[in-house]
Amino acid sequence: MARQELARFLRGRRAGLRPHEAGLTTAGTVRRTPGLRREEVAELAHMSVDYYTRLEQARGPRPSARILDALAQALRLTPAERSHLFRLAGSTAPPGSDTVRRVRPHVARMLERLPETAALVTDAAYGVVAWNPLAQALFGGDLARGTTNLARRRFLGQGRMHPTSRTEEFGHIVVARLRRSADRYPHDPRLTALLGELHAGSEDFRQIWRTHPVHAPGHRTKTLDHPEAGTLRLNCDVLLVPEDDQEVVLVTADPGSPSVRALNALAARAA
């Protein structure tokens, strides 16, 4: 635990946060400094003033994850600042309480710059939260409604799911990720509802769930039967957006292959 650095970080963020930014009213009060007072941070974080003061003076014990989360909320820290706070305290920042469905602007712009690559972003519950035109042409027009969930597609047959050579393997990948998400977000109502649907509606899902599969994102190849483009041999690569627990799925074909020509034709029509 880096006590001195943690103390400096807390003091700096407290001094830089204005009362109205923290939801405090200051009408009729005289303040010597523009930032928050220690007692205000302590109240917002639901801890004693003495405990918080000792943290700022590098005299406090190692704070728990609950205390650190409360401080991050009280000081309105960004996700990067929250992670830094945990590192200074000698801990690893756990994910937030709910799965993240927003897509960061730089991730969305990356999808736009990949016209010959089918690209989409999935959240921790396998909901599709962003995609580019080629991904829509490749995986189905219902992506445009923004309600597609790949786990529901795989196990419940909701939406267009073209058969692939790796459909069975994909089921294990889906269940492995959903198991991790269930541990990380036990109070997320959307995820809880999804798992209830899958358990109730798919014996295949229940059987795989019982095996506790473990899979890491990486490179895979698959053969996909597309109603317009025919049989495609595709490469699938996954990039992580760890701060939001999201995955960017990139689908390409080998240069010079019949599949890449078919993908390019789909891309031209999608454009």
Results as ranks from 00 to 15, higher is better:
Met1Asn: 00
Glu5Ile: 09
Arg8Gly: 11
Phe9Cys: 08
Arg11Pro: 08
Arg11Thr: 14
Gly16Ser: 10
Ala22Glu: 08
Leu24Gln: 06
Thr25Val: 12
Thr26Gly: 01
Ala27Ser: 11
Val30Met: 05
Gly35Trp: 08
Leu36Gln: 02
Leu36Arg: 07
Arg37Glu: 02
Glu39Leu: 05
Val41Ile: 04
Leu44Gln: 09
Ala45Trp: 01
Val49Asp: 02
Val49Thr: 13
Tyr52Phe: 13
Tyr52Met: 00
Arg54Lys: 13
Ala58Gly: 03
Arg62Leu: 04
Pro63Met: 07
Ala65Pro: 01
Ile67Pro: 00
Leu68Pro: 07
Ala72Ile: 05
Ala72Trp: 03
Gln73Pro: 11
Arg76Val: 10
Arg82His: 03
Ala89Lys: 02
Gly90Ser: 00
Thr92Val: 14
Ser97Asn: 09
Thr99His: 13
Val103Cys: 12
Arg109Lys: 07
Leu111Tyr: 04
Arg113Asn: 12
Ala119Phe: 12
Tyr126Met: 06
Ala130Gln: 00
Asn132Arg: 06
Pro133Thr: 02
Pro133Ala: 12
Leu134Trp: 04
Ala137Glu: 06
Leu138Asp: 10
Phe139Cys: 04
Leu143Gly: 04
Gly146Arg: 07
Leu150Pro: 00
Ala151His: 11
Gln158Cys: 09
Arg160Glu: 10
Ser165Val: 10
Ser165Cys: 09
Glu168Tyr: 10
Glu169Phe: 15
Ile173Ala: 15
Ala176Leu: 04
Leu178Arg: 03
Arg184Thr: 03
Pro189Ala: 13
Arg190Val: 14
Leu191Ala: 08
Gly196Pro: 03
His199Gly: 06
Ala200Phe: 02
Gly201Pro: 12
Asp204Tyr: 15
Phe205Met: 07
Ile208Val: 10
Val214Cys: 07
Val214Gln: 07
Ala216Thr: 10
Gly218Ile: 04
Thr221Arg: 14
Thr221Val: 01
Pro227Cys: 14
Ala229Tyr: 06
Ala229Asp: 00
Cys236Trp: 04
Val238Ser: 05
Val238Asn: 05
Leu239Glu: 11
Leu239Phe: 15
Leu240Trp: 05
Val241Asp: 11
Pro242Ile: 06
Val248Tyr: 11
Leu250Arg: 01
Thr252Ile: 12
Gly256Cys: 09
Ser257Gly: 10
Pro258Glu: 06
Leu263Thr: 03
Asn264Glu: 13
Ala270Pro: 13
